[in-house]
């Protein structure tokens, strides 16, 4: 994956990814409401293919499936963060939005190259950082695009 970094801060909770108010009253697209409380210019800056980069504890608090549907609608394929909350990490793998943990120094607008198979992230074509690796078992789930697709293919998790 290659894309421009769109930077967010620490402790971005489910309600900050998208407020439950918008999930309840949605009239079609909710993309324009993503991250509105923590980065009001998000919908103006973000283009499909851009990469979301956050600080510590991304996805804390409530992480309902609808949050992932909203991210998918915006064609978000992964989240890069210093650390990712347990429930977001789990649901991310299950729902096919990759939780990538990486301690890279990234500025807003940097060009990022992400190689999940190799476990590497390159900033502006120069500096390379390792991504926290996924266990083999989860790699299968990730390759299949999430837990349900994986189960459909294998009829088992083991």
């Amino acid at each position: 994956m290659r894309g421009k970094a769109v930077l967010l801060g620490d402790n971005i909770g489910g309600d900050m990814i998208i407020s439950s108010e918008h999930l309840a009253n949605q009239d079609g697209s909710v993309t324009k409401y993503l991250f509105e409380s923590v980065r009001p210019d998000f919908s103006a800056v973000y283009r499909p293919g851009d990469l979301i980069v956050a600080g510590k504890n991304f996805g804390c608090g409530s992480s309902r499936e609808q949050v992932f549907h909203a991210l998918k609608e915006a064609q978000v394929s992964c989240v890069i963060a210093k650390s990712i909350n347990r429930q977001f990490y789990r649901n991310g793998i299950n729902m096919g939005i990759l939780p990538l943990v990486c301690d890279a120094e990234i500025r807003d607008g940097d060009l990022l190259d992400v190689d999940v198979e190799k476990g590497a992230l390159v900033v502006n074509g120069t500096k390379e950082y390792p991504l926290s690796p996924f266990p083999d078992q989860l790699r299968e789930v990730i390759r299949d695009g999430g837990l349900l697709n994986h189960y459909r293919k294998c009829h088992s998790l083991s």
Binding site: E65, Q87, R90, N94, L138, G146, L148, Y151, L157, S158
Partner: peptide
């Protein structure tokens, strides 16, 4: 532990979770 709907779907189908 709390899990997502997809986990519950797979537990219903297979009694398994990761």
């Amino acid at each position: 532990v709390g899990v997502g709907a997809a986990d519950a779907a797979v537990v219903f189908a297979s009694d398994q979770a990761w």
